[in-house]
């Protein structure tokens, strides 16, 4: 099948045609692939459950509850005066991931944290560790009473989820 098309015009036209067809075809392949990829994202029923409300009225000072939100534990802690002051007093220069305490809470009494260690996803234990906060048993990360990383392999502070106060004794997560 030798190409005996000496006319350059025809040749250009064919090349243009082939390129155009391939381009149009590629767009189509992309459009077909997208639903196949997109289907693995959270579906609309999962997204709809993404916010929950937590009642705070039964939590006493110094106590902490854990609620399940988006399949992850969320710590809600009513901090004592001492814990608040110690968290506020910390020199930011000492911190690996410097963040003042007041940027991490909406009301200083209430600390809300995603209870997932920022190292590799284990759940830290409350009231353990060297800094009066949390301690992750998997690889030994220590968090302080503001949930900030103080010692160990975790790179960042415990994440604060999006939440808001709806009324004095209720927060809405997500």
């Amino acid at each position: 099948m030798s190409e005996n098309n000496s006319n350059p015009d025809t040749k250009n036209r064919r090349n243009f045609l082939t390129v155009a067809t391939t381009a149009v075809g590629a767009v189509g392949v992309g459009a077909v692939v997208w639903p196949v990829i997109s289907q693995m994202n959270p579906d609309s029923s999962v997204k709809a459950l993404a916010s929950i409300e937590v009642d705070l009225s039964k939590i006493k000072e110094g106590q902490e509850i854990t609620v399940l939100w988006r399949g992850k534990p969320v710590f809600v802690k009513r901090r004592t005066k001492e814990e608040i002051t110690s968290a506020e007093k910390v020199d930011l220069k000492e911190l690996k991931d410097p963040q003042p305490d007041n940027k991490r809470v909406k009301k200083s009494e209430w600390l809300v944290l995603v209870g997932v260690c920022t190292h590799l996803g284990c759940v830290p234990i409350s009231g353990k560790g060297d800094y009066g906060g949390w301690f992750c048993p998997c690889h030994g990360s220590h968090y302080d009473s503001s949930g900030r990383i103080r010692k160990g392999p975790a790179p960042t502070n415990l994440e604060v989820p999006t939440y808001e106060f709806v009324g004095d004794n209720k927060i809405k997560l997500g």
């Binding site: 036209r13 064919r14 045609l17 082939t18 155009a20 067809t21 149009v24 075809g25 189509g28």
Partner: peptide
């Protein structure tokens, strides 16, 4: 795409 492919095929 069908028209384009048809033209390519004819060529």
């Amino acid at each position: 795409l069908t028209v384009l492919v048809y033209l390519v095929k004819k060529k």
